[in-house]
Structures are given as C-alpha cells and as structure tokens.
Amino acid sequence: MDTLPLPDGGSAAAPPTPDTLRELYSLMAAVRQLDVAAVAWQRQGIIPGYAPELGQEAAQVGSAYAVDTSRDFVFPTYRETGVARALGVDMVKYMSTHKASWHGGLYDPQISRLAPIQAVVAGSVLHAVGWAHGQTLARTAGGRLAVAMTYFGDGASSQGDVHEAMNFAAVLKAPVVFFVQNNGWAISVPTERQVAGGSVAARAAGYGIPALQVDGNDVVAVLQATQRAFAHCRSGNGPVLIEAMTYRRGPHSTSDDPGRYRSLSEERDGAGEDPLERLRRQLLADGGADDGFFPQAHAAAVAEADTVREGLEALGPRPGSEMFDLVFQEPTPALQSQAAKWREESEHV
C-alpha cells in the first residue's frame, strides 16, 4: 500500500551512499547487541525489566535516521532502544528507566529530541500530535515545518487514543508521522485477531491521511519511506502513517513467555529475513563493504554494550525528594505536608 504523493519537487530522495549503508549496518549491529545484552542483564538482576526488540532493528534505525535532530522531535514507547541509539542518545541514561533509576530516562529530551520513554500504551501518539500542532501555530510565512514522529505497535493501534490523535492531526494538518511497527503480536494476540483487515495502514484513509506500508526488515526501504513522509509533513501537507511490517522475534517483555502462545516453528516461519543479514548481503553484493567490515562492526557493538553495562551498574538511586519536587510547578499544601512527613520518616529531619 502506498497512497503518499511524491514530494513537492516531484522526486524521491537519492538512494543512500555506501558510507550511509555501512553506518546503518553498524547502528543495527550496536542495537542488536544492546538488545540481546539487556535481556541478559535482566536475567542477571542488573535491571528489573526490559522490552526486547529483536528483529525490529531495521524499522527503528531506518526511521530514526531520517530525523533532523536540529528541529524534529520523536515520541517513543518503551521498546525504542534502536531509535534512541540511532538518534545518538546516551544509552546509559536511556537505560536508566529499565534500571528503575528514573522514569522516562535521564537523558535531556530537548537536546536529544527524544521525548521521555512512554509506558502508557498509545500515550506518546497524543503527545506527538500536540507538539506537531504547536509547530503549525509557530510557523512563519514560507517556513518549513519541524516534524513529530511517534512510534506505536499494531496492538496499540486499537486504542481509542490513536483514533483521536489521527483525527485531530488530519483535521488540523499537523506535521506528524505515525510510525507503526507491526511486529505481528499485541503481546499474545496475533495481528489478525485484533486489527480488522490485518492492516493498520488501511485505516489512514478513513482520516484522509496518506499511508505507506513498507517491509520493516529492509532498512533502506524504511529510511526512504520515512524521508518521503517527512518531506510531505514538512511542506505543510499534514500527517502521514507508515506501517513497517516486521516481526517480534523475542518475548513481549522479559516477564513474557511466548512459548505459551506460539511455537518455535511459528517463530521461524513468521520472522522473515533477518534485517542485519539482509543488509550484509546487499553490502557485499554491491561492493559497499568487504568481509572484514562485519567482524569489526560486531566487535565495536560488543564493546559498546559492555560500556553501557558498566555505566548501568554504577548508577545509584535517585534522591527520594524528587518524587515531590517534580509533581507540580507550584506545590500544593497537601504535597508539602507529604514531603515533610517523608523527610521526617526517611531522612529523620
């Protein structure tokens, strides 16, 4: 499915260079290693929980690579490790949420252009549309818009918040890209049992929103689709929906047992082509990389994951007083009373 017109210039973006393809591979390798390591860290007690994204590296890295971090803003869920890494976020500060040291991450959203991690299903979609509408209100004559991109899954697409967000964005022509990672499962429920027609992209027509359905295991296809979507939004044409068809190769979270609702053979049959292997074959076939490049990328990814683990283990607890300091801009008498009682009981002051 592709109902998105070509950009106003009439042509799509140029294909990525060999240098870009190697960078995309290195990013996906780093994400893959971080993701696999994070599951191990949870099993070892370093972090209490984690939502794996194994198999979704191309969808996340390819889409995030299209973001202009000097002006755009990204609104993630709790499964966007690859997006954060591709945007250059400090991964120790990102993983602090999974360490339970801080809600939403210790990184600075204004600098990184990544909003705090959102655990509420479809909550980030509403935030993105609000921010994007703000860009239309602040737009100067002839200026090109900053764009919001929000991530959610096929399961979250059934939330009422998504309906409200898409309708609001379409009516007000807000510059927002709705990026759906259709990984085949809404926790334990397959897509065909909770998305009528099996396609989230088809729903966009009901809101007058153009849509693209793309192979989410092909990082180049994802990158080019996202570049097209951003160009459409930046020109003032309103929102776009991208549905990246991929597969969640692991559990929904580290507390989930996928063996209770799918077999290993179903995983193998449904997973499709591995995103890293796909790009590796393309680079070799086109002469964009030689055999020596891939072990180097893997070694760098392992070293990076080790550094993140060391940083995570060094994180101490946050000051308990923060739970009161950051609730209201002007604290209420009731909150002040609670804070005083907490200090008396916890800090003996």
Results as ranks from 00 to 15, higher is better:
D2H: 10
L284A: 03
M245G: 13
A231S: 15
R249I: 00
V214R: 00
D274W: 09
S70I: 06
A128F: 00
E277Q: 13
H133I: 04
L4P: 02
W131S: 07
P190I: 10
V162Q: 10
L276V: 08
T3S: 15
G236K: 04
E267S: 14
W102K: 03
Y94I: 00
V129F: 13
E53W: 02
V121M: 00
A186M: 11
F328L: 06
K341H: 11
G9R: 15
D108N: 15
T17M: 05
N217Q: 14
M166S: 08
A340S: 15
H298K: 07
V240P: 01
M1Y: 09
W185Y: 08
M149G: 00
Q282P: 00
M91H: 05
R43H: 12
G49A: 13
P317C: 08
F324K: 09
A271V: 12
L126K: 10
G130D: 14
D256F: 11
K173N: 09
R79E: 04
A205S: 00
L54K: 10
A115E: 13
L241M: 05
M91Q: 10
G143I: 02
L87G: 03
P109H: 02
A14P: 06
M149V: 04
R249C: 06
R234Y: 13
V214A: 02
Q227A: 08
S253L: 09
F75H: 04
D2V: 05
Q159T: 03
T3P: 13
G250M: 05
S63R: 08
V177P: 11
R278E: 05
A186I: 06
F168Q: 14
F328M: 08
E57F: 12
H133M: 09
A300F: 11
S124D: 04
G206L: 01
W102L: 06
P239S: 12
V162F: 11
T226H: 02
K93T: 07
A100M: 08
L264P: 05
K93R: 13
V219F: 01
P52I: 05
S158Q: 15
S124T: 02
F73T: 11
H127G: 12
A146N: 06
R268D: 14
A59W: 01
R248V: 12
S255H: 15
V31R: 05
S265T: 09
P15Y: 01
M95E: 03
F168H: 13
S255R: 15
